[in-house]
């Protein structure tokens, strides 16, 4: 799974950082900083919950990206 922030939609509610502190922290202005775009399998559920909770739908969890072990940028499923 790959996470992206739509910075235009994001208004800095900060819920994502509460729900996924493993990957998301807030900058001094309250906007999310992603430690990594690729979400480890163990955190996929939390990431989905964080994306779902975003009040402005600015956090996007893309399931078509799968992080394999040691794959830094992920791969898109064929087809």
């Amino acid at each position: 799974m790959r996470l992206r922030v739509n910075p235009i939609a994001c208004t800095g509610h900060g819920m994502c950082a509460e729900l996924l502190p493993e990957l998301i922290t807030l900058d001094p202005w309250g906007y999310p900083l992603l430690a990594s775009e690729m979400v480890p399998q163990a955190l996929a559920g939390h990431a989905r919950r964080a994306a779902d909770a975003c009040p402005t739908l600015a956090l996007l969890a893309d399931d078509s990206f799968v992080a394999g072990p040691g794959v830094r940028h992920g791969r898109r499923h064929a087809g």
């Binding site: 509610h13 900060g14 819920m15 509460e18 729900l19 909770a53 009040p55």
Partner: peptide, 12 residues
Amino acid sequence: SSARWPRFLTQG
């Protein structure tokens, strides 16, 4: 939000 009451709780 406050120190004891995170935002996701409000939304939940």
